[in-house]
C-alpha cells in the first residue's frame, strides 16, 4: 500500500479497508490513552523488580519485596489459630462433652467449627444436611447404629467403622446366603420374619418357619426381639428406619450378601478439637441421645 488514501471530508488518511464502501479512518490513538499505555509499560517494569515475576529453571525471580501469597496465607492461618487458641483450649479441657453443650459460648464455637468441618469432610457421604443416603446413615434421626450419645459419636468419628484403625468398630453382617451359612429357602423365609418384626406385610407361614432360625443365627447381634445392639452396631429391626432399605428385595440382598459399610478413621486427619466440634455438631442435628 504505497499510496495513501485520504478521506475527502475529514482529510484524514484511511486504513484502506472498505466494508460496503464504508472506510475506516486511520486516526491516531487518543493522547491520554497513549500516555496511560506508556505509564503501564513503565509500571510493568517496576513491577518485575518489586514483585515475583519471571520463572526460572529452579525457582523464580522473587522481587525486592520478597512477596509470597503462600507465606501470607500461613501467617493468616497462624493468626486465626491464635485467635481461636482460647476457645480451642477450653474445648480440649472441658471436663466432659456435656459441659461443652452447656456452655453457650463454647457450644456456639463448636457448632460453627463443626458445621464447616462437616461440609468439608462428612457431607460427601452423609449429605449436606446429614440426611444420609442408602448405606450412609441419616444423622438427623434418633436411630443410631453405634450409639448417639456425644461420647459415642466422638468415638465413631475418631476411629471410624470397619476402618483400618485398630480401635475401629469391626463387627459386620455375615453373608448368610453367598457364604453358604444357610440354604436358599431359609434365607427366603427369614426375609418374611424380619419384615414381621417391623410390622410390614409378610407371609405368616414363612415367618413362622424362620423364627427358630432367627433365634439361633441372629439373636447374638440383633437380640431376641430384633431390637439390635449398639455395642455391635447391629440395627434395630423393629423400627421404620432402614439403612439399606426395608423392602423384601433389599432385605434378601442384605441376608444373602451380608453388609459391612465402611466409615474411615478421622484420627490423624482431623485434630482432637476438630473431632470434638464435629461430634457436638452432629449431636445437635436433632437426633442425639
Amino acid at each position: 500500500m504505497s499510496d495513501k488514501e485520504i478521506d475527502e471530508t475529514t482529510g484524514v488518511e484511511t486504513t484502506g479497508h472498505s466494508w460496503d464502501d464504508i472506510r475506516e479512518l486511520n486516526n491516531p490513538l487518543p493522547r491520554w490513552w497513549l500516555i496511560v499505555w506508556y505509564i503501564s509499560i513503565v509500571w510493568a517494569i517496576g513491577y518485575w523488580v518489586v514483585m515475583p515475576s519471571w520463572p526460572g529453571i529452579s525457582g523464580y525471580l522473587k522481587g525486592t519485596r520478597n512477596h509470597s501469597e503462600r507465606a501470607n496465607v500461613e501467617v493468616a492461618v497462624a493468626e486465626l489459630d491464635a485467635q481461636r487458641a482460647d476457645a480451642t483450649r477450653r474445648l480440649l479441657t472441658a471436663p466432659n462433652m456435656q459441659a461443652i453443650e452447656n456452655d453457650p459460648d463454647l457450644q456456639a464455637f463448636a457448632l460453627a467449627a463443626g458445621e464447616s468441618l462437616f461440609g468439608d469432610n462428612c457431607a460427601t457421604c452423609h449429605g449436606a444436611g446429614g440426611q444420609g443416603f442408602k448405606g450412609y446413615p441419616n444423622l438427623n434421626d434418633d436411630d443410631w447404629l453405634w450409639g448417639g450419645k456425644l461420647e459415642d459419636i466422638r468415638q465413631t468419628i475418631r476411629y471410624g467403622i470397619r476402618s483400618d484403625h485398630a480401635e475401629a468398630h469391626l463387627s459386620l453382617m455375615q453373608a448368610y446366603g453367598a457364604g453358604g451359612l444357610l440354604p436358599r429357602e431359609t434365607v427366603d423365609d427369614l426375609v418374611h420374619y424380619v419384615r414381621s418384626l417391623s410390622g410390614q406385610e409378610h407371609d405368616e407361614a414363612a415367618a413362622m418357619r424362620a423364627a427358630p432360625v432367627f433365634q439361633v443365627q441372629c439373636v447374638q447381634c440383633h437380640g431376641a426381639e430384633g431390637k439390635g445392639d449398639q455395642s455391635q452396631g447391629a440395627p434395630n429391626l423393629t423400627d421404620p428406619i432402614w439403612l439399606y432399605g426395608g423392602d423384601a428385595m433389599t432385605i434378601r440382598e442384605t441376608l444373602w450378601n451380608g453388609r459391612g459399610g465402611v466409615m474411615p478413621t478421622w484420627e490423624g486427619r482431623l485434630s482432637e478439637e476438630e473431632i470434638l466440634a464435629l461430634a457436638v455438631y452432629v449431636h445437635s442435628l436433632g437426633g442425639g441421645e
Binding site: A128, N138, N140, D141, D143, D239, P240, I241, G286, G287
Partner: peptide, 10 residues
C-alpha cells in the same frame, strides 16, 4: 436437607 425426618418410633 432432609425435608423431613422419620424417627424410630414412626
Amino acid at each position: 436437607t432432609p425435608p423431613f425426618i422419620l424417627m424410630s418410633d414412626g
